[in-house]
Design a protein around this nucleic acid. Sequence first.
DNA 1: ATAAAGTTTCAATAATTTTTGAAAGTTTAA
DNA 2: TTAAACTTTCAAAAATTATTGAAACTTTAT
Lengths: 168, 168
Amino acid sequence: MELAAAKLKFIEAWGKLGSEWGINRTMAQVHALLLISPEALTTEEIMEQLSISRGNANMTLRDLIGWGLIEKQHKAGERKEYFFADKDVWNIARQVAKERKKRELDPVLKILNELSTVNGDEKDPEFITFKKSIKDINKLAGNVDKTLETMLKAEESWFWSSVLKVFK
Amino acid sequence: MELAAAKLKFIEAWGKLGSEWGINRTMAQVHALLLISPEALTTEEIMEQLSISRGNANMTLRDLIGWGLIEKQHKAGERKEYFFADKDVWNIARQVAKERKKRELDPVLKILNELSTVNGDEKDPEFITFKKSIKDINKLAGNVDKTLETMLKAEESWFWSSVLKVFK
DNA sequence: ATAAAGTTTCAATAATTTTTGAAAGTTTAA
DNA sequence: TTAAACTTTCAAAAATTATTGAAACTTTAT
């Protein structure tokens, strides 16, 4: 396969994966484009390469900065802003894990803890089942949380060698 | 908090979490409802409790069966179909991991492997950056894949004790 | 064979999410 | 200060996704 075709295919695949995981397709595509670009790109270039509007490009770039996945760059003697992506895939994974944990897992953990204080009749099957479900989910979520915390602090090589060694 | 309020709150939170992770909100809510219900429920009861239409309930229940998260039950001497959820949270996590791996990770791995055969000029920065990104993503995805495979086969207690021991 | 009970389908509609594009805002250089 | 270059905002439009509901279908009992 030629480079041009491969790039398009990668951008498309990354966009699809993103949308299946609750990330806006355009955002994932812009990220893909910057990830495989050796140089920082301008808004114009991004708009053109992905055929998106200026407004969309601007908002998407802002969101990506908010996710900690890309940064602005200023070139000496130029008015334009350039954008580039962190190319370290482990950093990307950590960054995504960190943001989703903060935005989604943490609020759910908070609600689960509230729900585990529910009171009712210990003889009522409804009550028994509810409490057990909450307790079990809480335990699982707690373990996921601990593992993510470790991942956020860890070096890639250490993390995978540890995990894969255990699972051999 | 009282049981009735807690149930509503749980169903709402589960629905929200689902939608943030690319799972239809109603589907997550129906799953939540069955998860905390000690008895199997009929389509009628689900429709009523969540205020959804018959068509929606039917399609959602079918999808949940497709995900391996709920099952039909037939009660002796009754025409109606009852639905109940697997209450084992570890099974649920494995089932979701299994389905998402099959539907999303595996296709992406396939594309990444195709893309890693791209050919071009070894001196071209575009080419170099592209190949490196694909290679790195491939490696990470491969490790995730191996870990998921292990998880799919593992018992909950073994899995978490192993993972958390390493990360102590 | 028929009718009641229950289930499934899917075109139409509603709700939600994403995108556009033009106007407003900002920064820089002369 | 002015105007050109560039960025941001956001209401309106488009695209996508979810839901409804009524008709068609299936199963069971008589």
